[in-house]
């Protein structure tokens, strides 16, 4: 554990709390992609299956349980409690374009041909593109509530912080995980456009609006 990874994980936790706060205080999940949230449940469940087989640390176990539970809770909020505020007609990204290639990539790039490793690898690839339905929705509507942009910024910061974490681990432990690093770089790259607008507009007190 190093400071980059720790703050990355905190940022990830913060993003989830911001999202739950947004949905429950506005009593609406407007602007949030259900597809992206469903993909995160898939990511966490497939990756954290090792909860039952390998123990890393109490921190690790608690975080895994939290991520699975909170992502399921968000789906419940969107699908049941605040269902009328969820508008599927603007959440139109085709999931098969994401899931299909991730299955293929996992079959090619993995650390072992067994169910746990294949699902782990699949979850890494899927996480790297899981935000796309959300970003696509943002692009379509051209604007977002400020709280939603804070959620995305915290999520992007989590990914960005994992990069110095890997650099640090390479020098301190000689540890390199090429699958995580490659997928992580792609994932962080997807946030670059968003971050540009976030820094130049939202943090200057303006509304998040994309140029027409």
């Amino acid at each position: 554990m190093n400071i980059f990874r720790f703050f990355g994980d905190l940022s990830h936790l913060a993003s989830i709390f911001i999202l739950i706060h947004k949905i429950t205080t506005t009593r609406s999940c407007r602007g949030i992609s259900f597809k992206t949230q469903a993909l995160y449940v898939t990511v966490f469940v497939t990756r954290y299956l090792d909860l039952f087989t390998s123990y890393v640390s109490l921190y690790n176990t608690v975080m895994k349980i939290f991520f699975i539970a909170s992502s399921c809770y968000i789906l419940y909020l969107m699908r049941v409690r605040y269902r009328p505020t969820n508008d599927p007609s603007i959440d139109t990204f085709r999931l098969e374009y994401l899931v299909g290639p991730c299955v293929v990539l996992a079959l090619i790039f993995n650390y072992g041909y067994n169910p746990t490793e294949l699902l782990w690898s699949f979850s890494i690839f899927l996480e790297s593109v899981a935000i796309l339905p959300q970003l696509f929705m943002l692009q379509r509507t051209g604007e977002a509530e400020t709280i939603t942009t804070h959620y995305l910024a915290a999520l992007g910061a989590y990914r960005a912080l994992y990069i110095p974490n890997w650099i640090y681990r390479y020098f301190s432990e000689g540890y390199v995980d090429p699958i995580s690093v490659t997928a992580g770089l792609v994932q962080t790259g997807l946030y670059l456009d968003f971050f540009y607008v976030y820094f130049t507009k939202v943090l200057q007190g303006q509304k998040f609006e994309l140029p027409a």
């Binding site: 990830h12 990756r47 640390s57 690790n60 650390y111 490793e117 974490n165 540890y175 995980d177 995580s180």
Partner: peptide, 10 residues
């Protein structure tokens, strides 16, 4: 081999 470290990242 990264898998031997049992994927300690979240």
């Amino acid at each position: 081999d990264p898998s031997s470290q049992s994927h300690d990242e979240l």
